[in-house]
Design a protein around this nucleic acid. Structure first.
Lengths: 244, 244
DNA sequence: TATGGTTGTCTATATCAATAGACATTTAGA
DNA sequence: TCTAAATGTCTATTGATATAGACAACCATA
């Protein structure tokens, strides 16, 4: 069960720790039979805190839209899920999670032309200062934001990729129109950190949430880098799957 | 730079958010030239908080052994690193990070014989209740704990793997002695969460830290599952790298 | 319709988190 | 040896966090 193991005087408020625990339990399916979170008094006993502290935690989860309290009945689970994201040579956003949700969508948040920084240039194997197109995109599953990504493309080959992406909502299709029939993921790096302000806004997270960060390089079939991207996923909504 | 973007009234104390930020900056190499963290007054200005709040953050980092304050001089960086962990068909703990540290070591924390739970049985493709050997291990790099893992092995083939592992400190060698010359990683799942009490103890983390969790299945060369394991990595010490 | 179980609201109190200011102590360098 | 810059320590105040207790409001059901 969920109980025990919360820590005091750590700089992380008890109600937040407990909210995180309950969210995990919900996602894990611990309360699937009843469809409800245990009563506040029960949780207070389990976690060894005052009922008011439990109420703070549940209020935070209600704010996220995960639970809904009904006076006299209990606290109902509104939503739970953790999408499984396959990472492989053929990693694409919508592919692979298509059978887990009804609808996937990609939205263009912003775009700009810029010169390659040292870091991006290193990954794309080009010279620093080379013209690039930068895309900020948001990935949604069933209208729920899942990831936000910053991608860089060499401007000489993909100068107008933003327009095509805006029209089609698909990197794959945009590549195809620009003469790249197929592309492969050659490397992915994964780290994790706390969500920053932009994450909170774009991914509709609650403060203190965790984001999984992937840095990925895609190349065309001639092994020429075509896209370098940094994506930030809401950690409580996804799970990465690496198949070899 | 590190500044901005800390949030108030989120259930996560400012000093903890700032400590996490500074730790990240250190690991990212932002202060490599001087080998020191900026002065407290500078940080207070950058983060827009009181100097005392910065001092709380630095005190937490000092407690972790990451920085050391010297009166009159400044706050020195004692240690930083984020090991890069390759994940591939041939994923092993010590291999791949060998060139990043002087010494890697694996320690057996506990072992037990137990019957397969439904979940473990499903992964190992055996019947629920089948006898298993469970190993709790701790992975260290340069005497610093990096990951803790729970692994299950079918008892019929690997009944005494614990002894051999204890003697050799290597799963690979244990497998070899037990008639498995080679094995491959067929699937890895990655999630992230906050560290629990055991993580804090075993991995010597500070409360509120993040752990990356991998669930992995290894098979022998005949595609028969030989090991299912759940590992928990200190997120601020590692980075996963998936190469295709 | 009466009752037990549940969430909602209120008051009061103690501790932690954060700010503010002042001054001491130590170091490095002019 | 003096000074500037840095960390160390102290007091005081405010707001957030957590506990404690009491009771109201609501729901399902016997």
């Amino acid at each position: 069960m969920a109980g025990q193991r919360i820590q005091r005087q750590t700089g992380v408020a008890l109600w937040r720790q407990i909210a995180d625990r309950i969210r995990m339990s919900i996602n894990h399916g611990d309360f699937d039979e009843s469809g409800m979170v245990p009563p506040e008094t029960t949780l207070a006993l389990q976690f060894g805190v005052n009922r008011h502290t439990i109420r703070s935690a549940l209020a935070a989860l209600a704010q996220e839209g995960i639970v809904r309290a009904v006076q006299g009945r209990g606290t109902l689970i509104e939503r739970k899920e953790r999408l499984s994201f396959p990472i492989s040579k053929r990693t694409r956003f919508s592919q692979g999670i298509g059978d887990q949700v009804r609808e996937t969508r990609s939205v263009l948040l912003a775009t700009s032309d810029e010169a390659a920084s040292a870091e991006v240039a290193r990954h794309l194997k080009i010279k620093t200062g080379t013209p690039l197109v930068r895309l900020e995109t948001l990935g949604q599953a069933d209208h729920r934001p899942v990831s936000r990504a910053t991608s860089w493309f060499p401007a000489d080959r993909f100068g107008n990729i933003a327009e095509i992406y805006r029209a089609t909502g698909s990197i794959t299709k945009a590549f195809r129109e620009l003469g790249v029939p197929d592309y492969v993921r050659v490397i992915t790096e994964i780290t994790a950190t706390h969500a920053d302000e932009s994450d909170l806004a774009d991914l509709q997270l609650s403060p203190g949430a965790i984001v999984l960060i992937t840095q990925a390089l895609n190349t065309d079939l001639d092994n020429v880098p075509v896209q370098y991207s940094i994506s930030r996923f809401a950690a409580d909504r996804v799970r990465f799957t690496i198949e070899n």
